[in-house]
Amino acid sequence: MSYQIHQVDWGSQDNPIRQIRERVFVCELNIPKAIEFDGRDTTALHFIAYADNGEPVATARLCKDGLLGRIAVLPPHRNRGIYSQMLTFILSNAASNGLESICINCLLDEVERFKNKGFSPCGCVFMEAGIPRQRLQCPIAQCDSSPFTMVH
């Protein structure tokens, strides 16, 4: 299956974004809606991956301060490379969106993969919605935007 990734506007695409994130984060991971939908969505850049049948199957957001997050992939599309495709797409387009650096609050088992792309740890491991995470940061000019080797 092939995927098309597009940068989209929250105002016109909030419904599919909400549906995907609610299913993944609220229903699967039990993250409270108040944490998941934190008010930064209206000013963030959003990305949706569409399956070859036009169905929205994954989403992510990139905040104006460079924080990449809310990466959600619907269960039937996991382990098919979409997570990696989305990250590669977003990183390769970050500079054109006026960002000089990008950061991510990643799961601990993903830290090494991001380090291999040029990211460095910022601060200590912390808990976010009951999940241990590490903030990593990378200047856009030093970020390796070649395909990630992640399986999600």
Rank of each mutant, 00 (worst) to 15 (best):
H77T: 02
F47Q: 01
G130P: 04
R135Y: 05
R40I: 15
R133W: 00
N15H: 14
I104N: 10
F126T: 05
D41V: 08
M1N: 11
Q4N: 06
F148A: 06
A60I: 04
G11M: 09
G98N: 13
P76N: 02
D52M: 08
D65H: 00
G123V: 01
L99D: 08
R21N: 09
E28G: 03
R133G: 00
A49W: 01
A44Q: 03
E128S: 01
S2A: 10
M86T: 05
T43D: 13
H6R: 14
G98F: 07
Q19L: 12
H6F: 12
Q13M: 12
M150D: 13
R21Y: 09
I90A: 04
R78C: 00
L99A: 10
K115C: 11
P139F: 06
D52F: 06
N79H: 11
Q137Y: 07
S120T: 04
R18H: 10
D9G: 06
N93V: 04
T42R: 10
H77A: 03
D38H: 07
L87Y: 03
A95K: 11
M150S: 14
K115I: 04
R78H: 06
R23K: 12
P32K: 12
I90L: 02
G69Y: 02
G11I: 13
Q7L: 07
R135M: 15
S96I: 07
M127G: 00
Q4W: 09
Y83K: 05
C143R: 06
M1F: 07
K117L: 02
I71P: 00
E128R: 02
S92I: 03
I82C: 14
C106Q: 07
R135D: 05
L91I: 09
R133Y: 01
Q134T: 04
L74H: 04
N105I: 06
F25T: 04
P121L: 01
F47K: 05
S12Y: 11
T59E: 00
A49P: 03
P147Y: 13
L136A: 01
P75I: 00
E112F: 06
G69K: 00
L68T: 00
P76E: 08
A49S: 03
V73F: 01
C63W: 08
E36Q: 11
E128V: 01
A34G: 13
I48E: 05
S96V: 05
L108Q: 07
Y83P: 03
Q13P: 11
C103I: 13
V151G: 14
H6K: 15
Y3K: 10
G69D: 02
D65K: 00
Q142R: 11
A60G: 01
H77D: 02
